[in-house]
Computed example of a mutant assay.
Amino acid sequence: MLMTASQCRMARAALGMTLRELAAIAGISVNTLSRIESEGNVTSRTLVKVQGILAGRGAVFRRDGSVGVAG
């Protein structure tokens, strides 16, 4: 299941990460990350990459659209 734009925003906020921090870790531009978070056009490969980074830091993406933090 791929994360939604709102799940990306919620996960990043729950983990205390800025747009710049997450973009740098993912190796993408801030503009690309902004497109992800605003339901813009990005490749599924980029979306999977960002979701993997967030999940690796403890974000849990739920089917009901919510996000939790493992820990």
Rank of each mutant, 00 (worst) to 15 (best):
M1I: 01
M1A: 15
M1G: 15
L2A: 10
L2S: 13
M3G: 07
T4D: 04
T4L: 10
T4M: 09
T4V: 04
T4F: 07
T4I: 00
A5Q: 13
A5M: 07
A5T: 06
S6I: 10
S6L: 11
S6N: 15
Q7N: 13
Q7T: 10
Q7D: 11
Q7F: 00
C8T: 06
C8Q: 12
R9W: 03
M10G: 03
A11Q: 12
A11L: 06
A11M: 03
R12D: 04
R12N: 09
A13D: 12
A13Q: 15
A14S: 11
A14N: 14
A14Q: 14
L15V: 06
G16W: 03
M17K: 14
T18Q: 01
T18V: 05
T18W: 08
L19F: 02
L19Q: 15
L19A: 05
L19D: 04
L19H: 01
R20K: 07
R20N: 14
E21N: 03
L22C: 08
A23Q: 06
A24K: 02
A24L: 06
A24E: 11
A24Q: 00
A24M: 02
A24S: 09
G27L: 02
G27K: 12
G27I: 00
I28A: 04
I28C: 03
I28P: 00
I28V: 05
S29L: 03
S29I: 00
V30F: 07
V30G: 01
V30E: 13
N31E: 07
T32M: 08
T32H: 03
L33N: 01
L33C: 06
S34Q: 07
R35T: 11
I36C: 08
I36G: 01
I36D: 02
I36N: 00
E37Q: 01
E37I: 04
E37K: 03
E37V: 03
S38M: 10
S38Q: 14
S38D: 09
E39A: 15
E39K: 09
E39L: 10
G40W: 05
G40L: 05
G40A: 11
N41A: 13
V42W: 04
V42P: 05
V42K: 09
T43R: 13
T43C: 10
T43F: 05
S44F: 13
S44M: 12
T46A: 11
L47Y: 12
L47V: 12
V48Q: 12
V48E: 15
V48K: 13
K49A: 14
K49N: 11
V50H: 03
V50P: 13
Q51V: 05
G52L: 09
G52C: 07
I53W: 12
I53E: 06
I53M: 09
I53L: 15
L54A: 04
L54C: 03
L54E: 01
L54P: 01
A55W: 02
A55N: 10
G56D: 07
G56Q: 14
G56N: 07
G56H: 14
G56L: 07
R57A: 01
R57C: 01
R57P: 06
A59Q: 02
F61G: 11
F61E: 00
F61N: 13
F61H: 07
R63S: 12
R63N: 09
R63E: 15
G65D: 08
S66I: 06
S66P: 02
V67T: 10
V67Y: 04
V67R: 01
V67D: 01
V67K: 02
G68Y: 00
G68W: 11
G68Q: 12
V69D: 00
V69Q: 01
V69W: 00
A70N: 05
